[in-house]
Nucleic acid binder design. Structure first.
Length: 747
DNA sequence: GAAAAATACATTTTT
DNA sequence: TGTATTTTTC
């Protein structure tokens, strides 16, 4: 699908349209007015977007600088930028192709002084946000309140996503709790401004505010961006919606691309309504549906369609493909999470493909542990995508906090982090005193430190330490701009003896990994500086603040990929395993009472299934340990929504005969020569009754299947391992079942 | 200030 | 059950 590489300064319209299907062409050629491109999974969405931009420039003569393209992830923006560049050459540099957040950040950097911040503002991530809220809780003595900083953060973020600022929130607050939160929201916001800091929500909210309060600024951008394109429109929240409306109001040249069936971030503020109501919102809007799928087999697609068709809140789409029918979707009922992992491992071995062809998806991060253990025990290389973020690691945050304090003296949250790291004798008491002073003088912590040093006399240990510390910071601020960011950091690490401190504080193994992380941080700094025209500390901090885990490059290696279903969006793999397809886990029991959330779970399932190109496995465990307790779970309702003729269902041999969980792990899916007591110790399984031949299930006898339910044996063939039964199921019709795998019980 | 013990808490996390 | 955070102890 990749465009061929030569740099061009002009493409003929025909060249830009070749290789596209008729609907894709239509989308590419519709350059003006409101347009919704409903892009089904695997329908060549990015290709259409990229060609559309090139078409606008080369065929319609639209100036690159008048185009704004917005995405949600840096990765998507980067890919788009690169592919557009390949098509139109250096002119691509004039197009704004960015994430929502960095677009806003870029606008705010030039105008934010009007709102009472400086152009050096820091961006606080959610950890910083929480630290600040905790500080406020402490200061306002809110600990006795039945309210947690985490809850307040969620409420505040939610409000900001909806465009509600602290003042408006206060007017709306009805209950005592809401009023209390309003109070906290207010002082949180004041504190942010005091610290010259913006949280993620502020980036949007303040941009909208800026546009609202200063029409001339809005006009400037309306003028500039005559053509606006939004990717993943189904994930936009209310402020983003408002932002787009403001920007496109005069011309209505807004093209949004998305798939309502892949909206899985409502809990982060995404409003499905935005995409569902697009035509009503923008008069004269056109809708183009990209329904031809180039990714999956017919069977996979039909199975996914079966699941998603149960949703009511959707525009409705019929994905189809010219690809072959392919294999059936394999559903496997495992005994427990260990056997689930073993099944996956065995299938991976069985296929014997490049490991990079496999992905394992799960609903919750907690599920990854068992899978990881199984993979590494068998020596199968794997990567976990997402999960613990690199930039969340303590050592990385420490060092970045140093850089942030140097860059912005008012950033008190960062100062708080490093004021005693490495330990320099600034204890709890000193800190309390300084915080009080800052509160009293309504200044930042850094200013409070300087004030205290200036006024007082005497020679306490803390005083001396802080004086040294402040001197160091001043020196580094001078150094800033004269040396590279990397060199500056090098200097900080040396001067603070940071490594030594790390070594004392952690064991050998931990220290090694921390050292590695720091080395990786240096690598990333160096490669960033190399790619930047004018590398500056502020610029580096900006890019780091808006980066995510998925943006980090994973070395190209042959590994199995593990990730949550949320992480899987936008990706594709030849062979996909979806683990933990169980009621309570997926769909998660927390969604049982809310229809909208249940539909989102279903979309998540759809997203997972449509990642698979050739083969899809869906696995449910009858028993799983969850938060310390072992539960028996039913297979997920989503499995039952797949048309039965598309499924090849199997279950672990013995499972139907064991009433409850058994500590001894079943062997039928263990690999040959596997180590451990399970392999050598005599199995308890031998004591339990086993269906060893077809004779146990006479023709005409009633049986019970874990997935297909009750049925009657119609015919039998083969014997021993190859024994198969033809069963007429009450609800599911006629099926041939391999006795070896199906855990049939007499019914 | 660091280690040990107790306690809380567990869905997903594009920026 | 695993872990992250807070409190207690030395």
């Amino acid at each position: 699908m990749a465009e061929t590489g030569v740099e061009k300064s002009g493409n003929s319209p025909n060249a830009l349209l070749s290789g596209l299907n008729p609907v894709q062409r239509e989308a590419v050629q519709s350059c003006r007015g409101p347009l919704l491109i409903l892009a089904g999974a695997g329908s060549g969405k990015t290709r259409v977007i990229v060609h559309r931009i090139a078409y606008m420039i080369d065929a319609e003569g639209i100036a690159p600088a008048s185009i704004l393209a917005v995405t949600f992830t840096n990765k998507a923006a980067g890919e788009m930028r690169e592919r557009v560049h390949r098509l139109v050459g250096p002119r691509a540099g004039q197009i704004w192709i960015n994430t929502f957040h960095s677009t806003c950040s870029r606008i705010l950097r030039t105008h934010i002084s009007r709102l009472g911040y400086t152009d050096r503002f820091v961006i606080y991530d959610d950890k910083d946000q929480l630290s600040l809220l905790k500080e406020i809780f402490q200061r306002l003595n809110l600990s006795e309140l039945a309210l947690k900083p985490e809850v307040v953060r969620a409420v505040v973020n939610d409000a900001k996503n909806k465009g509600i600022d602290d003042h408006e929130f206060a007017t709306r607050a009805a209950t005592f709790q809401e009023q209390k939160i309003a109070e906290i929201y207010r002082s949180y916001q004041q504190q942010l401004q005091e610290y010259d800091a913006l949280d993620f929500g502020d980036l949007h909210l303040l941009t909208v505010k800026l546009f609202g309060q200063f029409p001339e600024v809005l006009a400037e951008y309306q003028q500039r961006f005559q053509y606006v394109l939004v990717d993943e429109y189904q994930d936009t929240n209310e402020v983003q919606y408002r932002l787009l409306r403001l920007l496109t109001e005069p011309h209505g040249n807004v093209c949004v691309v998305g798939d309502d069936d892949q909206s899985i971030y409502s809990w982060r503020g995404a409003r499905l309504k935005n995409i569902l109501d697009f035509e009503a919102d923008y008069a004269g809007a056109r809708v183009i549906r990209l329904e031809e799928n180039y990714r999956s087999t017919q069977n996979i697609l039909a199975a996914a369609n079966g699941v998603i068709s149960r949703n009511r809140q959707r525009k409705g789409k019929d994905l189809w493909t010219r690809n072959q029918a392919g294999e059936l979707v394999s559903v496997y009922i495992a005994d427990d999470e260990y056997e689930e992992a073993r099944f996956i491992l065995d299938k991976i071995r069985e296929h014997a493909r490049d490991l990079a062809d496999y992905a394992i998806f799960y609903r919750t991060n907690a599920q990854s542990r068992i899978l990881e253990e199984a993979l590494s025990r068998q020596g199968v290389p794997y990567v976990i995508v997402g999960g613990f973020r690199f930039y969340d690691r303590a050592e990385i945050k420490d060092l970045l906090a140093y850089l942030r304090v140097i860059n912005n003296p008012r950033d008190s949250i960062s100062l708080l982090r490093i004021i005693n790291v490495p330990t320099r004798g600034v204890g709890k008491k000193t800190l309390e005193m300084l915080k009080d002073l800052a509160a009293e003088k309504a200044c930042s912590l850094g200013q409070a430190v300087e004030l205290w040093l200036d006024e007082g006399s005497g020679t306490g240990k803390a005083r001396q330490a802080l004086a040294d510390f402040v001197r160091q910071i001043h020196r580094w601020r001078q150094l800033q701009g004269q040396v590279s960011v990397g060199d500056l950091l090098q200097e900080i690490i040396a001067a603070t003896d940071y490594h030594n401190w790390l070594q004392r504080g952690s064991n050998r193994h931990l220290y090694d990994s921390k050292k590695e992380n720091i080395a990786e941080l240096f690598n990333s700094i160096i490669s960033w500086e190399r790619n930047e025209e004018q590398p500056s500390l502020a610029g580096y901090l900006e890019s780091v603040a808006l980066i995510s885990e998925v943006d980090r490059e994973v070395p190209e290696q042959s590994r199995v990929t593990l990730m949550t279903l949320h992480g899987a969006k936008g990706l594709e793999f030849p062979v996909v395993f979806m683990a933990g397809m169980e009621e309570g886990l997926f769909p998660n029991r927390k969604c049982y009472n809310r229809d909208a959330e249940m539909e989102e779970e279903r979309r998540l399932c759809y997203v997972g299934m449509t990642r698979a190109q050739e083969k899809l496995y869906m696995i449910a465990s009858r028993s799983r340990q969850f938060q310390g307790v072992r539960n028996e779970n039913k297979p997920s309702r989503f499995l039952l929504d797949i048309p039965r003729e598309l499924i090849d269902a199997q279950a672990s041999e013995a499972s139907g005969y064991r009433p409850a969980y058994r500590t001894r792990k079943p062997e039928q899916y263990s690999s040959p020569g596997r180590e451990g007591p399970a392999a050598s110790a005599p199995s308890r399984r031998s004591k339990s009754p086993q269906p060893s031949s077809t004779t146990e299930f006479a023709i005409g006898s009633k049986v019970q299947h874990p997935v297909f339910g009750p049925g009657v044996v119609a015919a039998a063939e083969g014997s021993g391992k190859d024994a198969k039964l033809v069963i007429i199921f009450r609800d599911r019709g006629r099926k041939k079942i391999a006795l070896q795998y199906a855990s049939l019980t007499r019914g």
